[in-house]
Design a protein around this nucleic acid. Sequence first.
DNA 1: TTGATATTCAATAGAATAATTGAATGATTG
DNA 2: CAATCATTCAATTATTCTATTGAATATCAA
Lengths: 234, 234
Amino acid sequence: MEYQRSESKRAFKDQLYEQLARIGKALASPHRLELLDLLAQSERSVEELARETTLPVATVSQHLQILHAARLVDVRRRGRHRRYRLASGEVARLWLALRRTGEAHLAELEQLVTTWLPERRHWPALSIDAALELLNTGRALLLDVRPRDEYASAHLPQARSLPVAELATHLSELPRDCEIIAYCRGPYCVFADEAVALLRAHGFRAWRLEVGVPEWQERGLPLIEERSDFSWQV
Amino acid sequence: MEYQRSESKRAFKDQLYEQLARIGKALASPHRLELLDLLAQSERSVEELARETTLPVATVSQHLQILHAARLVDVRRRGRHRRYRLASGEVARLWLALRRTGEAHLAELEQLVTTWLPERRHWPALSIDAALELLNTGRALLLDVRPRDEYASAHLPQARSLPVAELATHLSELPRDCEIIAYCRGPYCVFADEAVALLRAHGFRAWRLEVGVPEWQERGLPLIEERSDFSWQV
DNA sequence: TTGATATTCAATAGAATAATTGAATGATTG
DNA sequence: CAATCATTCAATTATTCTATTGAATATCAA
């Protein structure tokens, strides 16, 4: 009877970990992680995801279905597109936890950054707290240098949208009497690096914020979010 | 040149996500998740893990090496055993984030609990806050009903060790004039359920704490931890 | 040294996963 | 209703992952 009981405990555990492994398996492909990373910025159509990842549309579709089967993403129709998004903030937290675990333990990650983004040595990135200090005392302007639709989906409270691609043509509108803080998708996105490089080349006092929208939200700080009720209409 | 630049960006991203996928792949097996779950309680030898998971030792060893290659676990020799443990609290947070994502989105998980642990309907589990309230006002006794070595590795500040297997023979030592709160490995562990059932059958006022040590620690609350400097000696 | 013990290694077969291609579906627009 | 477009499906192949077995290695104790 004690034996029977532990037999059935085993069956319970087997089923429990098998269910949780559905999520683990969904995280087991670099392409799917890239998709999650993009979706953490804003919802997107299959086509948009294919363009950004340089993968065939059919491949992206299949990966999205795997993510959907693990309930990590949601789909909705809009027009003739299907728009995928993270199932919840819980999924964003999972992705951030995975990334942080990598940062903590995979030396190769650090190596990648020093190899590919060597200019980061020059100027330190601002932490959330440092940025808030500057912003709350009016000593800095905050720029969201991501594409406009990501800004529309969700952005930091005091941010102005100025995609890095348009930055060069709008330099004259920027102030020279305060700091300029640029943020993008997060620590592995280069938009803010490029923005800071360009701004500094033109004599501005520019800094990169080390985080993006998902990390900001995870900290419990407020965001300006698109009314998704509206965005799903049409 | 713009083309070249985006080509090299792609190479960077490919390498980035490939590195992070090392961690995702490590999470892609139910057995490895069970190993992480056990290691979140306390370090263990290969043999102990094999016994608890009812897997062949060689299989456990191989899974541990996969976890080690992804830097999720550490090994050290002690005597003629090798003791594995989580690489850091970051890994515990990752595991908890994965589990929570499952709880949020996998209906099958909830179904499993109602099927296998139907007695949970009878009495609600205590939240951390509810338990702290009772404990700080001296109205409850806290029991750690896990095996003794897990208690030794780390336990909640006010807890007394009384493994569920020994509970029946120590009933006379327990107070009848206050609440008794039992905790175990966490929400999917049955030790506390069994303890509460036994205690209630004998007229005690017993409750299950809904969390275990990893969740307690994640909340930033203090633990009593074994001096690992000592434990590695010998 | 020898023997016992804990763990890892190596080889294998079977299962699951991934990418690719082209065709099919299904909704929207004209 | 036909044409268009976004997405999915189906079938294939190549690859990777998993579990199992028995042998090998390394450490400790006698």
